[in-house]
Design a protein around this nucleic acid. Structure first.
Lengths: 229, 229
DNA sequence: TAGTTCCGGAACTTTACAGTCTCGTTTATA
DNA sequence: TATAAACGAGACTGTAAAGTTCCGGAACTA
């Protein structure tokens, strides 16, 4: 039985992010700068190994902390990883600083900064090793949505602006196009383990996305497709 | 340290599929019908748990076999899983039985039989739990290529036929379109854990793929996009 | 300055599982 | 019919890791 399953059957609920204690005033204060060190150490290790491959000793050693210090903050490995994922996905999502070059093509390309690529590849590697952890749906959300949602939001905004500019028709399937981007990125990073670099992204944009968005079907008749099941 | 890493550092090479023994003629013969029972049991378990979550006791119990019987065939868990993946991907890929309805749209839809969908979703669930196992590149190929390659081959063939028919231009980016299909399928099955059903696939085809394939860029000038890095 | 809680480090306990071995039985060869 | 290997079942061994506890020292409060 996997580690995570064991834990879940024993305790009922997942605790909130970094448990708070009942207003104590005595003794040395908890050094909350250690929290981030520990979470960062956990992510660093998850980049290179899997959930099951990561040990609490590794985390403590990498953070130069004692295991007691770790368990004082998180009561189990599952909770630590849960919070580490949330920490990894803490978002620098600034919608107001989105590129606005005048064409959708340039906007999309500018969004794909080399630094963003490296960061996303790190997240993919973490995600790839989460296996048994993600089998529990309550954890799956934290691990996945946080990674992909920001990109979908940004791409959606860029495409909507293109509609407003008249660059693409209003009835183009923007949601599907956004999903294509995140799907291709994750497939390439997660499965093929190749870089989602500018060359590939350009080919995707020019070969598929822009042609599709600029020449959508005249009458996307869903009803007709449903009847012939 | 994960199980797989331990094993790999000890032994050098991965053994071939179901090891053969040096021409012995004495005693009871090995019952090779047990091989498939064991591999099938392994896959059945991998569908519901992860690589680390699967135990050899589970496999033996599910196959109604003794652990000795399992270890007589595979010298480690890693090798068993390796062969189980190959067994799962043993392909009923019959290129000659591809649909040929006269339109690319119908061909693609016919290819997506409900039974195929269920089978692929099973494979996705296995793949999702492989985490630490796939971190070794020599295993990654067996696990992933076997799942996706057949679909790419079939979709490529259908699209090439469409080119021959004159349904889509010859310079459409067929390879990219094939990748979009497998990417979307795996993203939906692996990450979102939603069904890649006919409704969704139809929206992908009508909203993105067919428009893109039928209206490719006039001059897909890769050179121009490369210089502005 | 005494009492309390934190810290890093490390020893310790417990549990689970990979891999091995034994047993009684079955199926093969010579 | 004697020997040999495979079979299912399950006991056994060794190791790894989650989680706990203790240590000596530091930091805080009353």
């Amino acid at each position: 039985m996997s580690e995570i399953k064991k834990k879940m059957s024993e305790r009922g609920e997942i605790s909130k992010v970094v448990s708070e204690k009942p207003a104590q005033t005595l003794g040395r204060k908890r050094d909350h700068t250690r929290d981030d060190k520990i979470l960062e150490a956990a992510i660093d290790i998850l980049v290179d190994t899997s959930f099951d491959g990561m040990t609490m000793d590794m985390v403590a050693a990498r953070a130069k902390a004692g295991k007691a210090t770790v368990y004082r903050r998180w009561s189990s490995k599952a909770e630590l990883v849960r919070d580490a994922l949330a920490w990894m996905n803490r978002n620098h999502l600034e919608l107001e600083s989105l590129p606005d070059t005048g064409t959708l093509r340039e906007d999309l390309l500018v969004l794909l900064k080399p630094q963003s690529i490296a960061e996303e590849e790190r997240k993919f590697r973490v995600l790839a090793g989460l296996g048994s952890f993600l089998q529990h749906p309550e954890f799956a959300e934290a691990g996945t949505a946080g990674i992909f949602e920001p990109w979908i939001v940004m791409n959606r905004e860029l495409m909507n602006r293109a509609v407003v500019r008249g660059e693409i028709p209003a009835h183009a399937d923007i949601e599907m196009a956004c999903q294509v981007i995140t799907s291709m990125a994750s497939f390439r990073g997660l499965i093929q383990r190749k870089p989602f670099d500018k060359l590939f992204f350009t080919a995707l944009i020019d070969g598929i996305l822009l042609p599709a968005l600029k020449n959508p079907q005249i009458a996307p008749n869903i009803m007709e497709t449903l009847q012939d099941e």
